[in-house]
């Protein structure tokens, strides 16, 4: 691969997150560079999803600093992540079940639409123009993910693998500069995993999107990611390129147990 990895765009320093007495994350620092694929791995309950929630502002860490494009990020609400061009998918699919695939992906472009509700009610001026403009963009995403045949189907009726793909589509529709994927391949068969890998690599390659992903399939993680950070019990135990991490004593212990 001959892709260019840029400067650090997200820098997390000494992040600690507590829920009451439970320490979800303790003193974690790592960074994400532009255009790279950064994996977060670790056993169940290691704090991986909490880490993503900290990045996009759903959780607020009690300690630590977050720098986004070199600027310290202060108090943040979830909807501000979208304005900062951070999109994400969820571990348990969080699609809008009553809506069609097309409408779901259209919601991804919500922040880019300017018309107000009165224009919408009258279907006039900006409302009409925007709807067509953004439809074109959404169709590009639909083509990219090869889901043309289901664009009008309510997502509730789709099989699991396709729903995951639609969720990726909704995130992509926002044209994010950073994409957070929470177990994009969980529960998929080999073929679906291959497809999803292809999409993730293509997104990274064609659009230059920075990707932070959580995944349990070690084969996939080691193959596609540029750097890997390993968490265990809310602490960072490894960080580096896949080969380094693979041979890290502590990582092996966390995954295979102390006896080995």
């Amino acid at each position: 691969m001959s892709k260019k990895i840029g400067d650090v765009i997200l820098d997390l320093q000494n992040i600690s997150l507590r829920f009451g007495g439970v320490k979800a994350l303790t003193d974690i620092s790592f960074n994400v560079c532009e255009h790279e694929i950064r994996a977060i791995i670790g056993p169940n309950g290691a704090g991986k999803s909490s880490m993503l929630n900290v990045i996009n502002g759903v959780y607020h860490p009690q300690e630590g600093k977050i720098f986004w494009h070199g600027k310290e990020r202060k108090k943040m609400e979830p909807h501000m992540a979208a304005q900062q061009n951070i999109a994400r998918t969820f571990q348990n699919i969080a699609l809008f079940k009553g809506m069609s695939v097309l409408d779901n992906i259209m919601t991804g472009r919500m922040t880019k639409m300017k018309a107000n509700f009165i224009e919408h009610a009258l279907w006039f001026g900006r409302a009409r123009k925007e709807e067509l403009e953004h439809r074109r963009k959404v169709e590009e995403v639909i083509d990219f993910l090869e889901i043309q045949h289901i664009r009008k189907t309510p997502v509730g009726r789709l099989p699991y693998g396709l729903q995951k793909r639609v969720e990726l589509g909704r995130a992509l529709a926002a044209e994010p500069s950073m994409l957070l994927l929470d177990e994009p391949m969980a529960g998929m068969n080999v073929e679906e995993k291959q497809d999803m890998c292809r999409f993730i690599l293509d997104v990274n390659d064609q659009f230059g999107t920075t990707i932070v992903l959580i995944e349990h399939d070690m084969g996939v993680v080691m193959d596609i990611s540029d750097r890997v950070v390993v968490l265990d019990y809310g602490k960072k135990i490894g960080d580096g390129v896949p080969d380094e991490v693979k041979n890290n004593e502590e990582v092996i212990r966390a995954y295979l147990g102390a006896g080995h």
């Binding site: 759903v58 609400e77 979830p78 992540a81 304005q83 969820f90 699609l95 809008f96 079940k97 926002a174």
Partner: peptide, 11 residues
């Protein structure tokens, strides 16, 4: 349908 996802999208 899913208010957490909605807010993360920017609603």
């Amino acid at each position: 349908d899913m208010d957490v996802a909605a807010s993360v999208i920017g609603i």
